[in-house]
């Protein structure tokens, strides 16, 4: 019987865990995106409203996520924080992918010495921890959103450059590139018209996977006090300011921002996994982070 191959979870739920994972990911992402897009303009509430009489209240109907140490509603703070984190994550991931694609394509299309020099530079950069390089970049500017975006973009393009380069190298040796060269196409035309369109699926996948990376990087920087200014709600800042109350046994100011950092990450990984499985069904996908 087919039951023999089902995991206990599958037996309980009565359907494959893969469908379940995809559905859960879609629902989480939908809720997150809708909340981030709709709540700030629709709910005319002030996320900065301080109410010292209500400080550090545990979750209740009035404040589903509780309140922080100056009595601000944490649900509202979390939504605003997620908005900033997602925005920074998406923009930084896009920028990192563009840089990585440009560098990888240049290395792959030119080959030879260009390729060797560029890829050794990439190796050198990736031998330094991301966070350390990122701190270097933010330290050069006043705190704000754009330095954080730059910090993520300038440290996270390396893996995309590697992926794009190897894709281009494999495309470059195909006969249709020979045919294009023989037909008089310039190096630029071959790269832009024939090679780059072929790497779009891989680069797109890398870009989507980069979003949670970028969110985590932003949170790490903010947690260290180097990212966004402390008054601006971001997931990293929320966790950072909740640190003190955690020692006093107040768990909610840390738990909810933390969960909101983890859940979208898992959801994006789940969606990308499903996408990869569609692209190459023979390869069982694992959670890629």
């Amino acid at each position: 019987m087919a039951d023999a191959r089902q995991s206990p979870l599958q037996k309980v739920l009565g359907r494959s865990t893969r469908t379940l994972r995809v559905r859960a990911s879609v629902i989480i992402m939908a809720v997150v995106v809708l909340a981030v897009v709709l709540v700030p303009p629709l709910a005319q509430l002030d996320q900065q409203a301080v109410d010292l009489a209500q400080k550090l209240r545990p979750p209740s109907w009035a404040h589903p996520f509780g309140t922080d140490d100056v009595g601000r509603d944490l649900l509202l703070r979390c939504v605003y924080g997620l908005r900033v984190s997602l925005m920074v994550g998406a923009v930084a991931a896009l920028a990192a992918t563009l840089i990585g694609t440009a560098v990888g394509a240049a290395a792959g299309a030119f080959g030879g010495w260009t390729d060797r020099v560029v890829m050794r530079l990439v190796d050198t950069c990736s031998s330094v921890p991301h966070l350390l390089l990122g701190i270097f970049v933010v330290a050069m500017f006043r705190p704000g959103v754009w330095p954080v975006v730059a910090s993520v973009a300038l440290t996270h393009w390396l893996s995309t450059a590697r992926i794009v380069r190897s894709e281009i190298l494999s495309l470059r040796s195909r006969p249709f590139i020979d045919a294009a060269i023989s037909g008089g196409a310039s190096r630029w035309r071959v790269t832009v018209r024939h090679l780059l369109p072929g790497v779009v699926p891989q680069a797109g996948l890398a870009a989507v996977l980069m979003v949670p990376h970028a969110m985590w990087h932003e949170s790490a920087l903010s947690f260290l006090g180097l990212g966004l200014p402390a008054h601006q709600a971001s997931l990293g800042n929320l966790v950072q300011s909740a640190r003190g109350s955690l020692l006093a046994g107040d768990w909610w100011p840390t738990l909810f921002p933390g969960l909101l950092l983890i859940l979208p990450t898992l959801a994006i990984a789940g969606l990308v996994g499903a996408w990869r499985e569609r692209l190459s069904p023979r390869r069982r996908s694992e959670l890629m982070l």
Binding site: P175, F176, I181, G184, H194, G198
Partner: peptide, 22 residues
């Protein structure tokens, strides 16, 4: 030089591989 390259026309064995799939 482009003029020299285009003096020669080439047809390869596998049409599938020698045509840009897009």
């Amino acid at each position: 030089p482009r003029a020299l390259r285009t003096t020669v026309g080439v047809v390869f064995q596998s049409p599938r591989l020698s045509a840009d799939p897009r």
